[in-house]
Design a protein around this nucleic acid. Structure first.
Length: 252
DNA sequence: CAATCGTCCTGCGGGC
DNA sequence: TGCCCGCAGGACGATT
């Protein structure tokens, strides 16, 4: 479920609520995010890290439910509830976060065009959608936003990197920034289980243009949105706006 | 290096 | 109506 915009929304909300509060006597000094991982730093140098995977929720002063897997009790009586229907999510205490943070590629909202281009040039035979979702390549993008980004950039999800022109690479990066930022502004996409740290839904799903729009008309050209499987995952795209190109095109 | 598949787990919605 | 099957936003490891 949660991709970068959803985790970032939760991070911002929790930072406001829990920095300065204490868990078991240790004070929270910072709430950070790396890729889709949420990090609470404590004043003793330890950290508590979370991955929400598909259905995890972290709700401040929420009420517990049959899907509550953990309740974190702050010293002042407030609570943080971890719900997780499918139980794929996890949390753990660590002494430092360096090792974990180094596993990921650059943050999607921090990478510049030069770095992005250099990284792409090392993966010329990869298909673009799975690559954008590869956290070791670039961190924070999942299935929803990769579909939306590629639609906005007019790039077919199966295109191999070596067939992409400079303009297309620039358009992909521009839309990574644009779409992720807009989604953060809308508090993320509530497709099914996602709720923010206040237990409220994000608004961005209603701006999705291709994700879960199979059979609907493309808002840009009127063609019918298609869905295919790529490595077991659904990819949604407009076959007319995002034509499949299997050879190099010189495009400015 | 690239791609696919199985795996963790539960609920929901479509189709019959 | 009711049941069964396939599918779901993530990510890892094994295999080819």
């Amino acid at each position: 479920m949660p991709e970068l915009p959803e985790v970032e929304t939760i991070r911002r909300q929790l930072a406001e609520k829990i920095i300065g509060r204490k868990l078991d006597g240790r004070e929270i000094t910072d709430v950070r995010r790396r890729a889709k991982i949420l990090i609470f730093d404590f004043n003793d140098g330890t950290s508590l890290i979370f991955h929400l995977k598909l259905t995890g929720q972290l709700i401040f002063n929420g009420k517990s439910s049959p899907y509550t897997r953990k309740v974190f009790n702050f010293d002042d009586g407030s609570q943080l509830i971890f719900n997780d229907v499918r139980k794929f999510g996890w949390w753990k205490k660590v002494k430092g976060t360096k090792e974990i943070e180094e596993k990921f590629g650059p943050e999607a909202l921090e990478i510049n065009l030069k770095t992005f281009s250099v990284l792409l040039s090392k993966r010329l035979n990869s298909r673009i959608k799975p690559l954008l979702m590869d956290q070791k390549f670039i961190a924070g993008i999942g299935n929803i936003y990769s579909d939306e980004i590629l639609f906005a950039a007019k790039v077919h999800p199966l295109r191999r990197v070596k067939t992409l022109g400079k303009k297309e690479i620039g358009d992909i990066l521009k839309n990574i920034r644009k779409i992720l930022k807009e989604a953060i502004r809308r508090h993320g996409s509530s497709v099914r289980d996602y709720f923010d740290a206040y237990g409220e839904k994000g608004d961005y799903a209603k701006y999705h243009k291709v994700y879960q729009k199979e059979g609907e008309k493309c808002l840009r050209c009127g063609a019918i949105i298609a869905r295919i499987k790529i490595g077991g995952r659904s990819a949604h795209f407009c076959p007319k706006c995002q034509p499949y190109v299997n050879f190099y095109l010189r495009r400015g």
